[in-house]
Amino acid sequence: MLLLGAVVVQLLHVALMLAAAPLLVGVVRWLKARMQGRRGASPLQPWRDLEKLLRKRPVLAANASLVSEVAPYVAFAASLVAVACVPSFSRGMLLAPVGDLILLAGLLALARMALALVGMDVGTAFGGLGAAREMSFSVFAEPALLLCVLTFAILAGTTNLDLIAATFRDGGLGLRVSLALAAMAMLTVAVAENARIPVDNPATHLELTMVHEAMLLESSGRHLALWEYQAALKLTLWLALLAAIFVPFGAAPAGAGPLAWVLGLAAWLLKMGVLCLALAVFESAIAKMRVFRVPEFLGAALLLALLAAALLFVSTGLA
């Protein structure tokens, strides 16, 4: 019975994530537009774009290899598996034992590599430039993420996401400076990983400022649809990850019934709404930074995460 519940929750979760991802992107765009005094496209617009792109045939460059054809599916599959492991409205999903934070970083790296390979496949200047920059940013983002994981691992004794969420929810950890610092670091990493302002501009096609979009210049049709969907999934994943770790309240416990699921869903939607609003405010208030400032931005996150761990060493030494 418990297993059946876990399977049902898992399937509902994946469906929810797939449905919410483009919507989330649309909501953030709409909120940003309203803040900038524009009316903005409907939040459903990304869905319509995907629908349109899926109908179109991809046009590949003459010298594109099999990499360009396979990579979008690989990246999407990796992101999908990653997103399936991050709890949303309920805990105790079927894939909870698989959902390890280091594995999550690995799956995101897999998607990133697939994207960078596509950027280099045709041999254009922008693609290579975007790939080199994307990989360089990850050099700073990854250790920051790992140090945040260190903070969680010290507090929860594990790197399993479901168990971390459970510990933070019931463990009576109180308000910890370390967690606040780790949250800042995670937010910074999330901004960088999702190519948002101030690291990258998701709305630009000005060549010199873009990183993520530069690698997709040669993609079209269903390939482009997959890439856009993948980017939306990644944004959803990060927001859900932040919500699951730092605001684990309201999620239905393992083995609960549909009523608890509905309550959990409402709580999750509320959390995601708040995070979207915060993202939109942040992006409207700040300007994109120079590419070579990004290491400083991410390096600050790295140092904050290190500080969080160091303070935690102190307090574990005290307790």
Binding site: L54, R55, K56, R57, P58, V59, L60, A61, A62, N63, A64, E69, Y73, V122, T124, A125, F126, E207, L217, E218, G221, R222, A225, L226
Partner: peptide, 18 residues
């Protein structure tokens, strides 16, 4: 799923490169 929704074969063309 994608190939069921989008059945057309991939086309080849000159590189776009902005």
């Amino acid at each position: 799923l994608v190939r069921r929704r989008s059945t057309g074969a991939t086309l080849r063309g000159p590189v776009w490169n902005c």
